[in-house]
Design a protein around this nucleic acid. Structure first.
Lengths: 219, 219
DNA sequence: TCAATAGTGTCTATGAGACACTATTAA
DNA sequence: TTAATAGTGTCTCATAGACACTATTGA
C-alpha cells in the first residue's frame, strides 16, 4: 500500500475509518431426486444455523474469500461465486461496522462432503429464520438461480453429462419449484443441447437419448 | 462498535486489516432531444475525467455516500442510487487496498446544475477511456438501464408528467440507442399508462393525449 | 400382450413486427 | 386543401401451452 498518497484535504488513505468486509454465501444445490436446498453452517459463537461466511483478508479477492470460507466452514469445494448484493446497514451486525457482500455459489450435491456437526443441507423452505439478514441473501440467491434456469439447460452444471431430457426436466422442476410441461420443456431446450450417440434404458420404456449442454452442428 | 466481541480465534474485529470502501457512480441522463449521457467529474489530483465517487464514512450507508459525492463533486441532487457490482481487484487502485461499490443513478437533465470546471455531461460513446476501470462501471450501468427501459414506461422518471406517447418513445429510443416502431411501442406501453383528460397540440397535427405512469382503472 | 417411458403432430391463443389506413389539427 | 402528427385495423409470423398421438423398450 502506498503510504504517500494524500487526498485533497491532506489525509492519507489510512486516516479514514474503514469497515470490516465480510462475504456470506448461499450455496445452492439439488440432491438427486430432491428439492432445491441450501448449505447452512453452525455458528461457533451462538449456535445458530446461518450461511457460511468470513471476513476478507488483506489483499484478498472476494471470490477467494468465499471459496476459503466454504472449504473451511462447510467442507465445500465451491466453484464460481457470483456477487449478489452488498448489505451495508451499519446496525446490521452487532459486532461493529461490517459490510457483507452476499454471494451465490451453485454446487452439484455429489461435490459436497459436509461435517454434520458444523454444516447441513436443508430445503430452502426450511432454512428461514437466519440471523444477520441471511434470509434476504437466500431470497436473492434463489431468484437469481431460478431466472438463470428459465432460459438455458442447467447453466450451472448441476447434472453430470450426459443426461436424459427427463433428468434435465426434473432438475429444472426442482430448481424452479414447479412442474413443467414435458413437451414444451423439450422443445425449448433441444436447440441448446447436443445429442450423443448413446441411449439410456432403465427398466421398461423407450430408451432415452442422452444429451450434452451446448449446441454443436455435428454431422 | 462493540470492543468486546472476539471471534473463535480470540481476535477482535478491529484486529483484522480492513479495506477502504469507495463508491463510484454512473449518473445517467438524457438531455431533451439528446442522447444517453453520463456525468463525469475532473479529478482534483491528476486532472482526468472520471465518474464521481468518494470514500464511505464511518457508519454511513452506501447510498448516502453516493448522494454526498454527487452533491459535493458534481452539484447533482441524486435520487435513488442502485448498487451494481463490487470491483475488488486489490491492484485496481494504486493508492492502496480499495474496494469500489459501483452504483447507478438516473437523474432528469433538468435536475442537473453542474459547475463546468469540475463536472460535465457527455454522451456515453464519448466517455470511454476513464481510469480505475470506470469504463466497466459505465458498461454495467448502461446495460442495467437499457433492460429496465425495455419493459416499463420511463421507470426512472426522466420525463416530467404528463407526457405524450411520442415524447415517451423518443426518450426510450435515446436510452436504448435504437429506433423503435411507433405502433408496437404504443401497444406495449398503453396498458402501463393512464391517460389524462388534457391534450397537447404543437403546430399542425392531431393533438396528442397526455399520459401518466401507472395504470389506473378510472371511471 | 401390457405397462411404462420417450418423443412427435398439431391445434390454438398470444404477442411482436409490419404496414396500410383513418383522425384531427394548423396554416 | 395540404401537410403534419396521432392513433387504429389487421395481416403475418414466431412461440408457448395443451393434448392426443406414435415409438420403443422390459416383462
Amino acid at each position: 500500500m502506498s503510504d504517500t498518497y494524500r487526498d485533497p484535504s491532506g489525509k492519507r488513505l489510512t486516516d479514514y475509518p474503514r469497515p470490516s468486509v465480510a462475504v456470506d454465501t448461499a450455496v445452492l444445490t439439488v440432491p438427486v431426486g430432491g428439492e432445491l436446498s441450501v448449505v447452512q453452517v453452525c455458528d461457533a459463537v451462538d449456535g445458530d444455523w446461518r450461511l457460511p461466511g468470513t471476513f476478507v483478508h488483506e489483499g484478498e479477492r472476494l471470490a477467494s474469500a468465499v471459496l476459503r470460507s466454504l472449504s473451511a466452514k462447510a467442507g465445500v469445494t465451491g466453484l464460481s461465486p457470483e456477487q449478489l448484493h452488498v448489505f451495508d446497514d451499519p446496525a446490521r451486525d452487532d459486532r461493529g461496522w461490517v459490510m457483507s457482500v452476499a454471494h451465490l455459489d451453485v454446487v452439484p450435491s455429489e461435490a459436497l462432503s459436509l461435517d454434520p456437526d458444523r454444516a447441513r443441507i436443508v430445503p430452502i423452505a426450511e432454512a428461514r429464520g437466519m440471523v444477520h439478514g441471511h434470509d434476504d441473501i437466500l431470497d436473492v440467491a434463489v431468484s437469481r438461480l431460478r431466472s438463470a434456469y428459465r432460459t438455458a439447460p442447467d447453466p450451472h452444471g448441476l447434472l453430470p453429462e450426459p443426461f436424459t431430457m427427463t433428468e434435465l426436466r426434473r432438475l429444472h422442476e426442482a430448481v424452479r419449484g414447479e412442474a413443467l410441461l414435458p413437451d414444451s420443456f423439450r422443445r425449448s431446450m433441444l436447440p441448446l443441447l447436443t445429442a450423443t450417440d448413446t441411449k439410456q434404458a432403465a427398466g421398461p420404456g423407450k430408451p432415452a437419448t442422452r444429451y450434452r449442454r451446448g449446441h454443436e452442428t455435428r454431422k
